[in-house]
Design a binder for these strands. Structure first.
Lengths: 131, 131
DNA sequence: GTTGACCTTCGAGTCGGCTGGAAGGTTTAC
DNA sequence: GTAAACCTTCCAGCCGACTCGAAGGTCAAC
């Protein structure tokens, strides 16, 4: 599959795929004439990249993590990715906690908007002070 | 409290606070001579900003959400922020799911690294194909 | 065999989010 | 009263992550 089709199927632009290749995130085979060729594995990688990006990881980090999936489980590299995985795991847990606090705040705001109008709170009581 | 102290106390640079003010995220009172002055509320706002950033929201979005906390609960603006809050809530839930899937993959990789060496898998079986 | 869609590389541009420097005003301590 | 530390505005620069355009090669269809 060539670059345009792959790009379209995952919802990005061909330039982005070229950029990812250059950044070491998405290797591509080449045809005889030099065209990039993508197989199904590239979809998996691109989904992984999308998730990492959505979680706010920089491409460099995503590239390293991809390296862990891709060929990181061989004995000779066993030791290397461990600290990174642990660090990322810690991040992810912290982020999950933040996310929960954040959704709580959002829900709270929604409740205040949607809930029954509270008697003690007139419209003109709206000041800069919160809660 | 002036800009340097506030910046130091929340772990950012004064330039960043000025940038946030200019971007409409962090208003500041001014002294007679024009110095920015920050009260305790600014810490709350900055924590909120930090969380939003950590969740990957653009500053523009964070600014709008801050507007909701800040003065969004008055009757005359009740209707406005609701769709945004719902959208953000949806995002947050989706993100939480992604985060969980991601930590699962991290843990899985750690298990493969740390776990007992599996007999059927020699060091030279390390190929590009995954799992 | 030429047209048009697609591909290549390379280099420059864009955008968000800062970051730093210059030129000058204020405050504090000696 | 002056030096150091801090503040102001303004404007230019940087970094990550794309995004685009130019100049040219490839390939399928007519």
């Amino acid at each position: 599959m060539r670059i345009s089709q792959r790009a379209e199927r995952v919802g990005v632009k061909p330039t982005t795929l070229r950029f990812y290749e250059q950044a070491g995130l998405l290797p591509a085979r080449r045809s005889e004439s030099g065209y990039r060729l993508y197989d199904e594995e590239s979809v998996e990688r691109l989904e992984f990249i999308a998730t990492g990006k959505h979680l706010g990881l920089p491409l460099e980090e995503i590239r390293d993590l991809l390296g862990v999936w891709e060929d990181g489980l061989c004995t000779d590299v066993r030791a290397r990715p461990r600290p990174m995985l642990l660090a990322r795991l810690g991040d992810a847990q912290q982020r999950a906690a933040e996310l929960e606090a954040f959704t709580d705040r959002l829900r709270e705001a929604l409740n205040e908007i949607d809930g029954p109008p509270r008697p003690g709170r007139a419209a003109d009581s709206c000041t800069r002070s919160r809660r």
